[in-house]
Design a protein around this nucleic acid. Structure first.
Lengths: 148, 148
DNA sequence: GTAGGGGTGTGAGCGCACTCAAACGCAAGG
DNA sequence: CCTTGCGTTTGAGTGCGCTCACACCCCTAC
């Protein structure tokens, strides 16, 4: 319930929609063009081409040479954009993807990256909560001063 | 108690220490040089000079022309760095400071900025919490796979 | 007196993550 | 046929927030 509320509150600014995720989970024959993919992920087509250029994903082409994003590519991009928007640098994403692409025996190294990111996220959240408290305090002070 | 724990957990990476804040609150005759100020704020002297250059603070000089950060300057910088590290862009800080420097009748406009920042902080926190959950989920999956 | 370790102002440089421009290709609709 | 619209590649450009290099200054200690 809480999770639903959070998701609804946070989804709009960008991120796959819930139905789209469901379709992905069903290992769909999803085949999106670049515009559709970009819209679902909340990024620009520019960014998707950029991610491909720097080797974060490989994307198939149709007869006309246009990109076709299949379920695996989209799933990877969902993960990547989630990590990106939560502050993981592109270099780390590259590293992670390199590990993924080089087999099963890199699992513990991937774990290390994820664990590190988890810790970063925790302390960033704590920091933002502190900043939020400070901001709310300042707002309260202004309100008192303004209309005592 | 929780607040103390949070503060202790978050302070180290940068931010004024508690004693230093107390001294400031007592409207001390604080007179720090640039290195001390930088250390207390968790930024570099470069950054402090930069902030002054772009008009975020005015800083007095001693006889040798060296910067002396008094209590008002430090208080302002505490606020500024807090807002900065929580993601407020420099342009907004400039705007805010301009409002502060142009008198009492800009209070409601300042409030608007703070309210907007508060909302941004809230949704960023929510987003990071979602990313944290996703990361923890992935970690859990890896752990299962690795040692079932 | 001189070496060292701090400081100064200024313009330029950097790293990151996009973002865009230019020149082109294809395919459908009027 | 020709426009419209979306796509392509590649190299270059942008905006942000610092960060540094340079040439200089001042004070202290030896």
């Amino acid at each position: 319930m809480l999770r639903r509320a959070l998701r609804l509150a946070v989804d709009p600014p960008g991120g796959v929609s819930i139905e789209a995720l469901r379709a992905l989970a069903r290992d769909d024959a999803t085949e999106w063009d670049i515009a559709t993919t970009a819209k679902h992920l909340g990024v620009s087509p520019h960014t998707l081409r950029y991610y491909e250029r720097i080797g974060l994903v490989q994307v198939a082409r149709d007869a006309a040479g246009h990109r076709r994003y299949g379920a695996p590519a989209v799933r990877r991009l969902v993960f990547l954009t989630r990590m990106r928007t939560s502050g993981m640098p592109i270099s780390d994403l590259r590293h992670y993807i390199d590990l993924v692409d080089s087999g099963q025996d890199t699992v513990s190294e991937r774990m290390d990256l994820l664990l590190e990111h988890r810790d970063i996220l925790r302390s960033r959240i704590a920091g933002l909560q502190l900043a939020l408290a400070a901001t709310e305090y300042k707002i309260a002070v202004y309100q008192e001063v303004h209309q005592p």
